[in-house]
Amino acid sequence: MQRVNMIMAESPGLITICLLGYLLSAECTVFLDHENANKILNRPKRYNSGKLEEFVQGNLERECMEEKCSFEEAREVFENTERTTEFWKQYVDGDQCESNPCLNGGSCKDDINSYECWCPFGFEGKNCELDVTCNIKNGRCEQFCKNSADNKVVCSCTEGYRLAENQKSCEPAVPFPCGRVSVSQTSKLTRAETVFPDVDYVNSTEAETILDNITQSTQSFNDFTRVVGGEDAKPGQFPWQVVLNGKVDAFCGGSIVNEKWIVTAAHCVETGVKITVVAGEHNIEETEHTEQKRNVIRIIPHHNYNAAINKYNHDIALLELDEPLVLNSYVTPICIADKEYTNIFLKFGSGYVSGWGRVFHKGRSALVLQYLRVPLVDRATCLRSTKFTIYNNMFCAGFHEGGRDSCQGDSGGPHVTEVEGTSFLTGIISWGEECAMKGKYGIYTKVSRYVNWIKEKTKLT
C-alpha cells in the first residue's frame, strides 16, 4: 500500500490518463441519441435557420407576430419608411378606419389613436360632414345658397324668414311668412316636400332668348283662358290664391305678392273693366268669414305684352289694390325667389296649380277651390304637342294621358313649387288646347323671366 501511494504521488498524470480511459469505455446513459432527441424537440425550422439574422431580410411573422416588435424591426421587413409607417399605425392600436367614419364618399386613412378623412370636392370637416359648395344638395341650405369668396357655403332665406341657429334652416321672422300653410287642420295635408338634388348652379339658368321682337298675326285659340281631375282644397291650404270678379264672377285667378299687390295673367284683364279681388276665398257660393274683398285701382301688364300681336306672350300683369290686405292664416303671400332659384325650383319637376275653373272641358265651374299636382314636361315634348308657338318664356306641365289639367277660369292662378315646406311661385296658368285632352298640356308663363320686374313694381313704400 505504501508503494502504491508513492507511485500516485510521483505520477499524477498517469492516474488522470487511467481515469479518462475508464470513462470513455463506459456506456453513456444520461444523453439520448440524435434521433430520439429530435422526437422530443420537434420544432419547425425557421426561415433563416442556421444563418445569422443580421444578414437576412426581415420576416413579418418572425419579427412582429411571434413577439412584439419595434418600429426598427418592422422597418427591416418593409425596407421602406412609408410602408412601415402605414403598417405601424394599425399594428400599434388597430384600424381606426374600420367603422368607416368618413361621410359623403370620403376616404379614410388610419393613424395612431386617430384617423384622417380625405374629402371629395365640396366637403370638409373631420368626417367630411361639412358642405362647402352650393353645387351639392344646395349646400344643405333649406332655401338659398351662395358661395363666399373663400368658396364656403353661405345660406340665406327669402323675405319674412331668418336663418336658424344651425345656419342652414329657415324659420319665420314674421307672423305670416310667405308660402307657408298655417291653418292647423290643413298642415297635415301639406304636399310632399321637395329635397334639393345635386345641381350645376353655374349652368342652372337656361341660355334662352326671349323672342321679344317676333311679330306674329293673332292666333285663334280655343278655350285658351284655361282644375280638371283635381281635388277639393281645404280652407287655408292655398292662402296665396285669390279669385278675380268682373263682368262675371271667378273669371280668373291670381296670387298675393304682398298686402297691396296681386300677380295674374295679362290676358285676364281689360282696361276700363272694374275688377274686384277676393282673398281668403274657399267656396265661392258661401260666406265663410275668411274672405277679404278689395278693388283694383291700377293694372300693370308687362311692358312687352301686346294682345294685338299675341294674347299669351309675356302673359303676366300686376294688380294694385285700393287697401292693403290683412295677412292671416287664410290670406298669405306666395314666396318669389330670384331668377336663378325660381328656375331651379321649376326644374324640380312638379308643381301645384289651383283655381275655381271648370271641372271638365266646357263644363261647370268649381264651387270649392280645386288643386292638382302636375309634372313638368320637357321642352321637346311640349313643342311636338301643339302647332302653336311655345315661346321661351312659357313652359308645359300636365299629363300625356289627359284627364287632369287646369281649365277655363283658372287662368292667372299660381303654379307653385314647394321647397322644404315653403311654396314659391314658378308659373302662372296661361293657356292650353281644350282641357285635359290626351297628348295636350297646360301652358304656363315662366315666372323666372319676370321676377325682377315683379319685385321692382310691387315694392311697398
Results as ranks from 00 to 15, higher is better:
71 F>E: 15
295 N>P: 03
104 N>F: 03
153 V>D: 04
254 G>Y: 01
195 V>I: 11
430 S>Q: 06
387 K>I: 04
40 I>M: 12
382 C>E: 01
165 E>V: 12
333 P>F: 00
188 K>W: 10
441 Y>G: 02
177 P>N: 01
202 V>D: 07
347 K>L: 07
335 C>D: 01
302 H>D: 02
277 V>N: 01
377 V>N: 02
127 N>R: 11
447 V>H: 00
419 V>G: 01
442 G>N: 12
48 N>V: 06
198 D>M: 07
254 G>T: 00
265 A>I: 00
333 P>E: 02
378 D>K: 08
102 C>N: 00
337 A>C: 02
311 K>R: 13
373 R>N: 12
43 R>N: 15
164 A>T: 09
73 E>K: 07
135 N>I: 08
335 C>Q: 01
347 K>W: 04
214 I>S: 12
364 R>M: 09
401 E>V: 07
121 F>W: 08
346 L>S: 03
143 Q>S: 01
350 S>H: 12
169 S>T: 11
398 G>A: 05
204 S>R: 13
226 R>A: 07
135 N>E: 09
349 G>L: 04
363 G>N: 05
214 I>K: 12
394 M>Y: 04
267 H>T: 05
40 I>H: 14
332 T>R: 12
156 S>V: 05
11 S>D: 04
32 L>A: 15
455 K>T: 07
285 E>Y: 07
3 R>E: 06
53 E>V: 08
68 K>F: 08
426 T>C: 00
18 C>Q: 04
170 C>A: 01
360 F>T: 14
166 N>P: 02
190 T>I: 14
236 G>L: 06
317 A>E: 00
342 T>A: 06
425 L>D: 01
110 D>Y: 06
204 S>T: 10
304 N>M: 14
325 L>C: 01
362 K>M: 09
212 D>M: 08
417 T>R: 01
231 E>A: 12
271 T>C: 05
123 F>R: 04
400 H>E: 13
243 V>L: 09
307 A>Q: 11
232 D>H: 11
155 C>H: 01
9 A>Y: 12
403 G>K: 14
443 I>N: 01
407 C>T: 04
317 A>C: 05
350 S>Q: 13
459 K>H: 11
420 E>C: 09
49 S>M: 11
275 I>Q: 03
77 V>T: 14
209 T>F: 08
84 T>C: 04
119 C>F: 00
113 N>R: 11
10 E>Q: 09
236 G>K: 06
19 L>I: 11
58 G>D: 14
83 R>L: 10
412 G>T: 11
405 D>H: 12
68 K>M: 12
302 H>T: 02
86 E>A: 15
276 T>F: 05
119 C>Q: 00
